[in-house]
Write a protein that binds this DNA or RNA. Structure first.
Length: 420
RNA sequence: GGAGGAUUCGCCUAGUGGCCGAGGGCGCACGCUUGGAAAGCGUGUAUAGGGCAACCUAUCGGGGGUUCAAAUCCCCCAUCCUCCGCCA
């Protein structure tokens, strides 16, 4: 949620941001108009209410005819107060509703435009030359007895899978390595709820009612998270944090659930795009003025992880139109997938500035003891999808896969051997 | 699933219709006292919105109602605790 007071002072900032995203600018004027009307409705309610209160006090002191006269007036006033309050509430609700639809103000440094207007910031490593025809991760997963897609489909349907044997070990090792790195960097390790209440989902910037990506449990009014970012953002909701504890950093391990509606036909093969996967996610609460630096730190921790799996990757600066609701800026690290001949997203780190925290009411006390809205950031340390990159980049001619050195202690194997 | 109890300012607690946004204690902050500290004394100590100064308004788990007036009365819901049942 954007800040109304800032909007009043500098509406052009939001206009520019909407332009950069390729979205509607007129929302700015609608907001300003509604805000103005709500404030005046609120003011008239408040003065009527003040009158009612003081009148009420004189009622209790008066007696006889005088009291009756006062009562009559008070009764009349009570009706007016009620009407004024209803009007103010109505406008407030309208304003809130509109405000809910406005995405975060983008960082002016973010590239303008849509999905394809990203800027490549850095390319690390070079794709390996194969002296044999590389197998894709599906084939390798099958050879190694690591990924069972057929039975995943049998049990749960399309885009489900079993990780088994070395596949399960690879995921556990990878995510444990991520957790270990996070712990060493001072993160608090967390295993988070995967079902959350609507206000947590909404607060994090996902629309419970409209978002086609969210799995819902209507019977219980609970929602499956698409990332532990949601649970970790909600963790400090309605709290005022101690400034000396900032930045507060958490590393959450959870399964993630995505409906992948509207992606029919995309990545139907393998475990690139699935309904359920596991992820270790960094989440940080910090002062807004520190958030840009924090964002770069998160990116560096992602690079550190990627270095450990020894694959070529590049970093892109996502364009404004592709930032989603909450992010002001987003960097993705994309790993090289040999059989696709292109880079695919392995990590994503977003600076959500105060957007999520304002919705969730996460604040901290500044030097003067005044509550201020915190900034929140998130970034990926590892996910199930990384298995694709590891298998494909480190495969050998016989179908075996060399485990990257850093990962070996966590997986307990140097090489994954075919089972058939 | 059933029965009962609870939910007030960071914590503990007072408060059964107007004098309660709300008293006390603890904690915390500042000051006095002291060679220094403790104790003691004094002052302050929620959040949000509006004017942005005095001040005004809202909020006593959430929502609705009764009333001129609700922390206080009524209804619904949520959470926690206890007991019973059910499952393992």
């Amino acid at each position: 949620m954007i800040d109304l007071r800032t909007l009043r002072e500098d509406p052009d900032r939001l206009r520019a941001s909407q332009r950069a995203r390729g979205e509607d600018e007129s929302v700015v004027d609608s907001l300003l108009d509604l805000d103005e009307r709500r404030r005046s409705a609120l003011a008239s309610f408040e003065s009527l209410r003040a009158e009612q209160k003081s009148l009420g006090k004189s009622v209790s002191k008066a007696s006889g005819e005088e009291k009756q006269a006062l009562l009559d007036r008070a009764k009349e006033l009570a009706a007016q107060v009620k009407a004024a309050e209803a009007e103010a509430e109505k406008l407030g609700a309208e304003l809130d509703e509109l405000l809910q639809t406005v995405p975060n103000i983008v960082d002016p440094e973010a590239p303008h435009g849509g999905e394809d207007d990203y800027v490549v910031l850095e390319t690390v490593g070079t794709p390996r030359e194969f002296d044999f025809e590389p197998r894709d991760h599906v084939e390798l997963g099958e050879l190694l007895g690591a990924i069972d897609l057929d039975r995943g489909a049998k049990v749960s349907g399309a885009r489900f899978y079993f990780l088994r044997g070395v596949g399960a070990r690879l995921q556990l090792g990878l995510l444990n390595m991520a957790m270990q790195q996070a712990i060493e960097a001072g993160f608090v390790p967390m295993i988070t709820p995967v079902l959350v209440k609507p206000e947590t989902m909404q607060g994090t910037g996902f629309h419970v009612a409209h978002d086609k990506e969210i799995y819902r449990l209507p019977e219980d009014d609970l929602y499956l998270v698409g990332t532990s970012e949601v649970s970790l953002a909600g963790y400090h909701a309605d709290e005022i944090l101690d400034a000396k504890d900032l930045p507060l950093r958490y590393a959450g391990w959870s399964s993630c659930f995505r409906r992948e509606a509207g992606s029919y036909g995309k990545d139907t093969r393998g475990i690139i795009r699935v309904h359920q996967f596991d992820k270790v996610e960094m989440f940080s609460y910090c002062r807004p003025e520190d958030s840009r630096e924090e964002h770069l730190r998160l990116l560096n921790w992602e690079k550190e992880m990627l270095a450990k799996i020894e694959i070529p990757y590049r970093i892109i600066d996502t364009a404004a139109g592709d930032l989603g609701m909450s992010a002001a800026r987003k960097f993705d690290c994309e790993g090289w997938i040999p059989t696709q001949g292109r880079y695919r997203e392995l990590t994503s780190t977003s600076n959500c500035t105060e957007f999520q925290a304002r919705r969730l009411s996460v604040r901290y006390r500044d030097k003067d003891g005044r509550p201020q809205t915190a900034a929140t950031l998130n970034g990926t340390l590892a996910t199930t999808r990384w298995i694709v990159a590891i298998l494909e980049n480190h495969q050998q001619k016989d179908g075996s896969v060399v485990v990257p050195k850093a990962l070996r202690p966590y997986v307990g194997l140097d090489v994954l051997e075919p089972v058939k």
